[in-house]
């Protein structure tokens, strides 16, 4: 059992490093279509992190909605708009080095703060299942649930109205 435990730990940190590497590729690659594919792998990796945190329902939702639906939308938009493969068009603006400096400073600040704080953690991971999640959605959080469903409906109708052609 000890070997399974250490194997799980190693694969967990491997997944974290892999997600970061793929995410950096997503934001730096020149070809936008490749960026979308890398984004799909980032989102799949996040689903794996949810599995490690024993949030299985959320991992399923992540794969269905992000990798299934949002990725399709993004790839459609790339196909409809960009002229892929023109290497003369610069893909990043002139803010690259100021942004990098700002982000490095922010990273140092965040990480030092996280390491300094003493978190009041439990010994074992608290878990939940889909049944309790559904009861929470329909009980305690029923008002935000209804509001968010209305927001989704209105946003989708608005997206159709904005994107359709006038003819």
């Amino acid at each position: 059992m000890e070997i399974f435990n250490s194997l799980a730990t190693v694969s967990f940190y491997g997944v974290l490093v892999g997600i970061l590497a793929v995410a950096i590729l997503t934001v730096t690659t020149r070809n936008l279509f490749h960026a979308a594919i890398f984004l799909a792998f980032t989102l799949l990796g996040v689903a794996v992190v949810y599995f490690f945190l024993q949030a299985e329902f959320l991992a399923g939702v992540q794969i269905l909605i992000y990798v299934g639906a949002i990725m399709t939308l993004v790839i459609f938009a790339i196909m409809l708009t960009s002229k892929i493969g023109d290497p003369n068009v610069p893909q990043s603006n002139r803010q690259r080095y100021p942004a990098l400096i700002l982000i490095l400073a922010f990273a140092v600040f965040l990480i030092s703060t996280i390491l300094k704080t003493s978190w009041n953690t439990t010994e074992t991971l608290q878990t939940t299942d889909a049944i309790r999640l559904g009861k929470a959605l329909m009980g305690e959080f029923v008002f935000p649930f209804e509001v968010v469903s209305l927001v989704l409906l209105i946003a989708l109708i608005g997206a159709i109205v904005v994107a359709r052609s006038d003819q």
């Binding site: 970061l20 995410a23 950096i24 997503t26 934001v27 730096t28 936008l32 993004v74 938009a77 790339i78 708009t81 960009s82 610069p90 893909q91 990043s92 603006n93 803010q95 690259r96 942004a99 990098l100 700002l102 982000i103 922010f106």
Partner: peptide
Amino acid sequence: TGLYGALTRRNAV
């Protein structure tokens, strides 16, 4: 990483 992308990309997508 996402913030860097949002700040430096020229393409809206």
